[in-house]
Amino acid sequence: MNANTKQNKVAIAVKNLDHTFGQGNLKKQVLFNINLEIRSGEMILMTGPSGSGKTTLLTLIGGLRSAQSGSLKVLDKELFGASTRQLAQARRQHGYIFQAHNLHHSLTALQNVRMGLEVHPEFSPKEMNEKAAAMLEQVGLGERVDYYPDNLSGGQKQRVAIARALVSRPKLVLADEPTAALDSKSGRDVVTLMQNLAREQGCTILMVTHDSRILDVADRIVNLEDGKLKPLNTVTA
């Protein structure tokens, strides 16, 4: 764990959180009394079987769904009871990395990364291009700024997705199975890259994964099974 983690403030505080899908006879509870605290600067991996509620919890923390109960405080903002506008504002503070990288195939690597800045009106078009190019350089794709996704490998596409998530220097990065489609080396490279860049920027990472090959990079591991959070485990070297 980072030496200063205990002194850092809380980045995510989830208390007594339940979540249900559907109505009437189709109603199904998928999260049960979730309580979780993550401090600024921590890298947390969330594991568990498919269908255990990991992605649902990640999307709630990311403001992509509305919290139905309890308390969900992210970066000092309470998301339970938040309006659509407030959720949109909260999302601007996050970097989100999807399993399938979700790049726009009609846009270049530079244009894809630039999208991570377009919700920030304080940047001019020139500044956005400069920041996007610099971030692609940091992830090792400085010579591929004008490449389209179809001309990039799987690992390179995920690097573009990481660059897009980090280009606005977010305080929180949420990642949903970012190594699922990658081979062992590419997966390790991607996670190490996320870890290094995020620590340089001082942000918190919460990553959903089934990939046992990368568990050693975590400060802590959270295990979710059948919608219930298991005790936290500390990773030791």
Rank of each mutant, 00 (worst) to 15 (best):
M1P: 03
N2Q: 14
A3M: 05
T5H: 07
N8R: 15
I12T: 05
T20I: 14
F21G: 04
Q23T: 14
Q23K: 15
G24Q: 12
K27D: 03
K27A: 12
V30Y: 06
L31Y: 04
L31W: 01
I34A: 04
N35C: 11
I38N: 00
S40C: 04
G41C: 02
E42K: 05
E42C: 04
I44S: 00
M46K: 03
S50L: 04
S50A: 03
S52H: 06
S52I: 03
S52N: 06
K54A: 01
L58W: 01
L60V: 02
G62L: 00
G63V: 06
A67K: 03
Q68P: 01
G70K: 00
S71F: 00
S71I: 01
L72Y: 03
L72N: 05
V74K: 09
V74R: 05
D76E: 12
E78I: 13
L79S: 09
G81F: 05
A82S: 14
S83F: 06
T84H: 10
L87T: 13
R92S: 08
R92K: 15
R92T: 06
H94P: 00
H94K: 06
F98L: 08
A100F: 14
H101S: 15
N102I: 08
L103Q: 09
L110E: 15
L110I: 10
M115Q: 12
V119M: 12
H120V: 02
S124Q: 11
S124A: 11
K126M: 11
N129I: 03
A133D: 15
E137I: 07
V139F: 05
V139G: 02
E143H: 14
E143G: 13
Y147C: 09
Y148N: 07
P149S: 10
D150W: 11
N151L: 06
N151T: 14
G154P: 07
K157W: 09
R159Y: 07
V160D: 04
V160G: 07
V160R: 02
A165D: 02
R169A: 09
R169F: 00
P170M: 04
K171A: 13
L172P: 00
L172I: 10
A175L: 00
D183L: 10
S184D: 13
K185S: 08
K185I: 14
G187C: 13
R188Y: 11
V190E: 10
V190T: 14
V191K: 05
T192C: 10
L193H: 09
M194F: 12
Q195K: 15
N196S: 15
R199M: 11
Q201Y: 14
M207G: 08
V208L: 04
V208N: 07
H210P: 09
V217Q: 13
N223S: 15
E225D: 14
D226H: 12
K230P: 03
L232T: 11
L232I: 15
A237M: 10
